[in-house]
Design a protein around this nucleic acid. Structure first.
Lengths: 190, 190
DNA sequence: CGCGACGTTGATTTGCCTCAACGATTGTGG
DNA sequence: CCACAATCGTTGAGGCAAATCAACGTCGCG
């Protein structure tokens, strides 16, 4: 049951079999088909989502009616609208499965109870949030530092397997450039 | 002693007088003059910095030798290179006082011991990291969503008092635009 | 006073977008 | 299993937001 989640937690804190059972009372499975949604704009984001298997994207709609992807999540990544969860405010985002996916969620309402029962998870989630924040800081640095072309080259050489897995226009969207321009860049250096 | 820090922690978790004393064993004051540095590029970031009074900026140097500001920190904000702390790797950043400032730091090496002595701080820092991550997600959304002009207008109308406090070229740098262009925007709508 | 830090102005350039049109591939209902 | 429509990627022409470059005003401070 959720081997990736349990393994991931145990990489950071202790969790015996009994405690695993307690945890399981608080989590919910979501088996998603390709293109199925976990969250849509206007809803309050109710969960923190862990990818057991598959792949998610988070995006919002810009004024010109195009989708702007802000996050991907692969196996063992957590994904959520942390602003909506923190302030209990309607989300601006959609979260959608890019492919058939197995997701585990922890309900935001119940998370406090869970953390009271298993206090070591305070530590686990602190570490997870810390790492996510580090990643976010680095990403912002790249956005300031690199041209669109450099961003594209860095991303494709850092995640070659991922680039195979998802359509090109999603990579383009995530990097903040147009599909047309990605095409131009690909022609440039094959 | 550090009234803002204690008050800030107590806004999120319980902390009695005895526990405050324990905390004080782990924190260090830094009284900074204007332009003094807490961190310079190449050092491993050793602390998480809380602004009791004053104002910090974090920046790195781009290839064209210009300073790129990535973060400001005002009173009651925490600031650090979370990547350098997490991976114990040399920082790419400088952290500098913009004005005379009183900073409190928690040493990264000792933080684990502190958290073992005061486990409720696991919760406090989880919440802090969560909020910082929410802010970072929102900022990335704005970077994708808004033009430079809209970014500038949003920032100046959101933080009018802060805009008075720091030189204009720093605002420009943080928003990723040139001082010349800020000048043009200011002329446009006074 | 004079020098360095800060802001402004205008001319020119460019990275990347927009728009429109056209292949190639995928998948789906009849 | 084929027809045909989406979906996805490519190409080229033209345009614009914002950068670069250079030069000059101005203020505060040692």
């Amino acid at each position: 049951m959720y081997p990736n989640l349990i393994k991931h937690i145990r990489r950071h804190v202790e969790l015996n079999e009994n405690e695993v059972q307690i945890l399981l009372n608080y989590v919910r499975p979501h088996n998603l088909k390709k293109r199925e949604f976990l969250l849509t704009q206007g809803q309050i984001c109710k969960g923190n989502y862990f990818v057991e298997k598959g792949c998610l994207r988070m995006f919002f709609i810009k004024d010109n009616d195009t989708e702007q992807i802000t996050q991907f999540a692969l196996e063992t990544w957590w994904l959520s609208d942390y602003f909506s969860i923190a302030d209990n405010t309607p989300s601006q985002y959609f979260i959608q499965a890019i492919e058939k996916s197995e997701i585990v969620s922890i309900d935001a309402q119940l998370q406090d109870n869970l953390l009271r029962e298993l206090p070591q998870l305070e530590r686990y989630f602190r570490i997870i949030m810390h790492r996510a924040l580090a990643a976010s800081q680095l990403r912002i640095k790249y956005m300031y530092e690199l041209s669109k072309e450099e961003l594209y080259n860095l991303f494709t050489s850092s995640f070659p397997e991922f680039v195979q897995r998802v359509p090109q226009y999603m990579i383009a969207s995530y990097l903040g450039l147009t599909p047309e321009y990605v095409s131009e860049l690909r022609k440039k250096k094959p």
